[in-house]
């Protein structure tokens, strides 16, 4: 598992991938991107960590947080769907306007919230899936 070049490379690439994921998440509201893609990008970052430093390293780092993250993501997504119930419909898009001094008005809607939930679920799910997949592969090599 001495993937030395990867271990060097991932110090550069991992932050870039995380920033890219956040950009995708934000941009995804009006342009290509979105929570699902952003989640996959984050999982890619962890995949590189698995390849570079081994799955045990990643498991120790984030293993216990994966399933709770899925739970949090699901709760956020459901929350965004239930938010509009007072207005009479389930899953109706709801918007808030927050005026930022000097920077205009920020419009935040429940679709963004939903996307964040999807992002958390997908990133945690795909990462734990990759961790499980890397387990038997190591067993075979021995």
């Amino acid at each position: 598992m001495a993937e030395r070049y990867l271990a060097l490379l991932d110090r550069i690439l991992t932050p870039i991938l995380f920033v890219l994921a956040i950009i995708f998440l934000i941009v995804g509201h009006n342009e290509p991107g979105g929570g699902f893609i952003a989640g996959l990008v984050v999982a890619t970052a962890f995949l590189m960590q698995i390849l570079a430093r081994g799955d045990d390293f990643v498991r120790k780092l984030i293993g216990v947080y994966l399933q709770p993250t899925m739970g949090v993501g699901l709760v956020i997504a459901i929350f965004s769907a239930v938010l509009s119930l007072p207005e009479g419909a389930f899953l109706l898009g709801t918007w808030w306007k927050i005026s930022l001094p000097g920077a205009g008005v920020l419009e935040i809607g429940s679709p963004t919230l939903f996307d964040i939930g999807v992002f958390l679920v997908v990133s945690a799910f795909v990462t734990s899936y990759l961790l499980e997949l890397s387990r038997p592969a190591r067993g075979n090599r021995r």
């Binding site: 709770p68 739970g71 949090v72 699901l74 709760v75 769907a81 239930v82």
Partner: peptide
């Protein structure tokens, strides 16, 4: 939605 909420909340306590 209710089973989904239940499953999500149950996942929150599944770290160990």
């Amino acid at each position: 939605v209710l089973p989904l909420i239940g499953a999500a909340v149950a996942l929150l306590v599944s770290s160990r």
